[in-house]
Every structure is written in structure tokens, then in C-alpha cells.
Design a protein around this nucleic acid. Structure first.
Lengths: 160, 160
DNA sequence: CAGCAATATTTGTCAACGGCAAGTTTATTA
DNA sequence: TAATAAACTTGCCGTTGACAAATATTGCTG
């Protein structure tokens, strides 16, 4: 197992695309029968935890422009999966939250997802599971650091 | 670090979406300035290694229907990134291969990708790198096993 | 060996997706 | 209070991708 940097980079470039392709296919599979697209489910997942989110923050969380988020919410609204209300304090902002039906749908998908990931987990040895969790945790930390650094770099640039 | 199955599943469900979101954003960033979409670059990557690929195999590799692959190749053709020829032996099949320009573009993206992943790698400790490679390798094996099992299951079903 | 099924691909049609630029409405600031 | 800024929405356009129906070519069968 080459753990030097060039070897690591080579391995990781081979592994990640395949794993991502599989996980994306899996994400589509878990939506079978529910009349929802992956993009729409992503939005429901982001909206699951908070009571409600301003349009802009929803867009950020999804990595979309605000216009794309507006349109996405338009469709979710037509399907009765979310509610959209103007903020009473700052009437520029529009707040989005899950409808009862939207929450039920998200719950169902979470359940399917959990069953599927459990199936994966059962085929891994305990050591492999902990390697995975520790490795991914470290990687995510790196990503978050880089994101934070580039954001603050941008800000100082704009402020100067 | 909970490595029991429920704990693992919970961790992994938190980690993967975030990491995938970051990697997708990164994949968009590495295309800046090149007039290519992520879907188009995926196709170029798949076409990079083999001399040429039948339309159907390209579709499979990308996880698309053949019709979607046809359309994707249409655009790549308009951009002079690929060539498309009928197979002389079996004149039903259409073979697609990179053009010189397409190959140059893919090379450039590979280079950017390598630089970026090296940046990630430099921020990980050696132990974290090997955890990651070993964990992801094991996971990919599970995915491939599951895919293989479901394919053979489908085949026997269809043949019966 | 004619004819019909199977294979490989394309086309028509439709909706979702997402970016950019130009609006609209509401808040903030000078 | 006028000018600016902030938070969204809309118009416009091209890409993406699925499904069903065509097309062309090959393979099989009686």
C-alpha cells in the first residue's frame, strides 16, 4: 500500500470517481417510486434539520445560484413538498421549510438510505470501517479548511 | 470512534454527502476557462484510455441511456473533442474516440486534478492517507461485489 | 434463403436543471 | 430623502437525461 503522496494521489484518483459514480447511482435507486429527482431530494435533506431557511442560505448549502434555488423551490412547492413564506421582520427574505408531506418523504428516503448503508457496512471488517471513517473525517477537515481559507482570502481581497 | 455498524452508518451518512459536494464543486472549478461541462469531461475521461468505444459501452460507463450518450457525443463532436465512425465489421455499432484536441483538453484537466489532489494529500498525515486508501478500496470492492451480484441475479431472472 | 427477431443507435418529445443578466421589492446608509 | 445595497424573481438560453418510437444492420430459423 503506497502511502507516499504521489502513490496516494494516484490511488485516490482511481477510487473516488468510481465510488462517487456508484453512490450517485445508489441515490437514484433510493428514489424509485417516489416522484422526486436527486436535486429535489438534496433540497429536502438540507431543509430537514432547520425549521426554515432563507432562499439564499438554501442556495449556498446546495451550491446553486439563488435563481436556480428559486426554481427548484417552485417545483417543490407545486409538489406540496415545501412551504414558502416571506420573513415578517425583513420582508426581502423568503423562508422555505418542509411541508408535512415533504418531511414524510425525507424520512422514507433516510430509512432506505440507512438500510442500504447497513448492507455495505455488514460486508466490511471492523478495521475497514474505522479506516474509512477516520480517513474521510480527516479529508473532510482538509476540505473545510481549504474552503475557509479561500473564503477569507476572497474577503480580504474584496475589502482591500 | 464508534466502529460498530450503526455508528459507522451514521458517520458515513454525514461524511459522504459533504465530501461528494466538495468534490463536485472541485470538478467544476477544474473546468474553469475550458468550455466544457462536467458531463462532457466525464465522457472525455472515459474515452481517454481506450482507443475507441462503441456508443453503448460509453453509455454504460457513464451510467446513461444510449440516447443520452448519443446527444452528449453530438455536442462533443460539434466542439471537435471526439470523432465518431461506424464500425466496419458490424455496421450497426458506432465507435467514438478522442480527437487530438479532446486528448489535450483531458491532459490539461488531469494535470489540474493531480495538482489539486496533491494539495489535499499534503495536508494529511501518512496514517490518514493509508486509512483513506484502504477504507475506500474495501468499500469499492463491496460496491463491485454488490453490482456483480445484482447483475447475475437479474440475468438468471430474465433467462428463467 | 426469405423473413422475422434481436441488436445498436438515433430521433422526437418533454421536463428538470442551472447559469447569467435584468428586473422588483424592501432595507440601509449617507 | 435620495442613493445604494440586499434578497429574490423572471426571462432567456443551452445542457442534461429519460422514454418511446423509428431506423439500420445482423443473426437466426424454418
Amino acid at each position: 500500500m503506497p502511502a507516499d503522496i504521489p502513490g496516494f494521489v494516484q490511488q485516490i484518483q482511481r477510487l473516488f470517481p468510481r465510488i462517487m459514480r456508484y453512490l450517485e447511482a445508489e441515490a437514484s435507486r433510493e428514489l424509485i417510486g417516489l416522484e422526486v429527482t436527486p436535486a429535489q431530494m438534496n433540497a429536502l435533506v438540507v431543509l430537514y434539520e432547520p425549521k426554515n431557511l432563507p432562499m439564499g442560505e438554501l442556495a449556498d448549502s446546495l451550491g446553486l445560484t439563488e435563481s436556480a434555488a428559486t426554481r427548484l423551490v417552485d417545483r417543490l412547492l407545486r409538489m406540496n413538498l415545501v412551504r414558502r413564506d416571506r420573513d415578517e421582520v425583513d420582508r426581502r427574505v423568503v423562508r422555505v421549510r418542509l411541508s408535512t408531506y415533504g418531511r414524510q418523504l425525507a424520512d422514507l428516503v433516510f430509512q432506505r438510505r440507512q438500510e442500504q448503508f447497513t448492507r455495505f457496512a455488514e460486508r466490511l471488517r471492523e478495521e475497514q470501517r474505522s479506516n474509512l471513517v477516520e480517513g474521510l473525517t480527516a479529508l473532510l477537515t482538509v476540505f473545510q479548511d481549504l474552503e475557509h481559507e479561500s473564503r477569507t482570502a476572497n474577503n480580504t481581497f474584496q475589502e482591500s
